[in-house]
């Protein structure tokens, strides 16, 4: 496994249902990493930039990989992405955009901003599980991911 056991997965996702679907998918695929969820954009920014209630570095380990939804309450996922990719340290963390939007403009913008991949949330659960399986295979098992401190 190339994503270290201790490395956490950050999921920025406002939808309870989608998050539950992800959790189920990870469980089915036996992903053992800790999953931390930020349910809105502002929380995600605070966590990533260690501010607000996440100011303590010990309590906010750097994620090994980020799953980012675009349409979020508070700070928009697109903004989070561009902030991340403009930060010298954080830009190394792979970002998987996982969103309901399939707008060409969003796809273009996200890759322009530095997204590492862009996946449309499949609408039915089977496809969702399949998508998560593929992402796990590629990003968690196949790819080598840097350690960010």
């Amino acid at each position: 496994m190339t994503l270290g056991k201790g490395q956490i997965i950050l999921v920025v996702e406002d939808s309870e249902d989608d998050f539950e679907a992800m959790e189920r998918a990870f469980k089915k695929e036996n992903v053992g990493n800790t999953i931390i969820r930020c349910s809105n954009g502002d929380k995600a920014i605070d966590y990533l930039f260690r501010q607000g209630k996440y100011y303590e570095p010990d309590q906010t380990p750097r994620p090994g990989i980020i799953f980012l939804d675009l349409n979020l309450p508070g700070t928009d996922g697109r903004v989070i992405l561009s902030k991340l990719k403009q930060d010298d340290i954080l830009r190394s963390i792979p970002v998987i955009v996982l969103t309901t939007s399939s707008d060409e403009r969003d796809i273009q913008d996200c890759f322009q901003a530095g997204a590492n991949t862009y996946v449309k949330k499949p609408v039915d659960f089977e496809s969702f599980i399949e998508a998560m399986r593929r992402l796990k295979d590629y990003w968690i098992e196949f790819s080598i991911i840097p350690k960010v401190e």
């Binding site: 939808s15 309901t100 609408v123 039915d124 659960f125």
Partner: peptide, 20 residues
């Protein structure tokens, strides 16, 4: 449409989880 979609996704997911 966007805001309707979210709960709709939820309905779909939940009905799926229900099935499961």
């Amino acid at each position: 449409s966007h805001d309707l979609k979210e709960p709709l996704r939820g309905i779909r997911m939940q009905s799926r989880f229900l099935m499961e």
